[in-house]
């Protein structure tokens, strides 16, 4: 009799526990990749990411940039060669990017850009440094340091561009605008986005993320 009661009580408790665990499980099993993605989504903050990217990758990566004078000379001789040798494409489509560094003498200053001549004997504008506002993906896509496949979706990747551009406008361009005067020498590192070869190659329009002036 007692044994039967005990058996019924035990079964009821076990069933109740199982029902409880069904509705309130102690843990969930999810695929590893899915868990990684959830974690990435939960912690992704473009401002924080750009903080890290700027100091750990972008500034140290400046050494990889092609010399601006060499690039301009190649573009003048053979656009296709310049594109194939130094250009960088992202995915499919006509747009491509150059990652460039150099120094030049300011020969023009206007509202949105500063014109540089790269050689001492040159008076023509060979390179334009943009002074803002900055739009587009020149720095995000031009360096080759960031890959869309490392981000959960394109909105996160676009947020990165907006944050890089904001940082350039706030931390890099004020000095350039303030110090811009004809004859001043500027050292720069930046990226150029070539959407239309007819207009974007000559002069080369560069979004600088590093600017040094005496």
């Amino acid at each position: 009799m007692w044994g039967r009661r005990r058996w019924i009580t035990g079964t009821t408790v076990a069933a109740g526990t199982m029902v409880l665990l069904y509705f309130l499980p102690l843990f969930h099993v999810v695929p590893l990749e899915q868990a990684r993605q959830r974690a990435a989504v939960a912690v992704y903050d473009p401002v924080e990411f750009v903080d890290w990217f700027w100091t750990e990758q972008l500034i140290p990566g400046a050494a990889e940039a092609i010399d601006a004078a060499e690039l301009v000379a190649t573009v003048q001789q053979d656009r296709q060669l310049a594109r194939e040798t130094h250009g960088r494409r992202v995915g499919l489509g006509g747009a491509y990017y150059f990652f460039v560094a150099g120094s030049g003498r300011i020969v023009s200053v206007d509202r949105y850009s500063v014109g540089l001549a790269l050689c001492d004997d040159q008076q023509q504008i060979q390179v334009l440094l943009e002074t803002g506002p900055i739009f587009g993906n020149a720095v995000r896509d031009g360096t080759g340091l960031l890959d869309v496949n490392d981000f959960a979706n394109s909105q996160d990747f676009n947020a990165l561009s907006a944050e890089i551009n904001r940082r350039i406008e706030q931390q890099v361009l004020p000095d350039l605008r303030t110090g811009a005067a004809i004859g001043v020498t500027v050292r720069f590192v930046g990226c150029a986005e070539i959407l239309d070869e007819g207009t974007d190659l000559s002069p080369l329009r560069i979004v600088p993320f590093l600017v040094e002036m005496p």
Partner: peptide, 16 residues
């Protein structure tokens, strides 16, 4: 195969 392949969107205006 790559997970994502972005395809650039290009501006069309009277000049092009």
């Amino acid at each position: 195969l790559p997970q994502k392949i972005p395809v650039a969107v290009e501006l069309v205006h009277q000049g092009n």
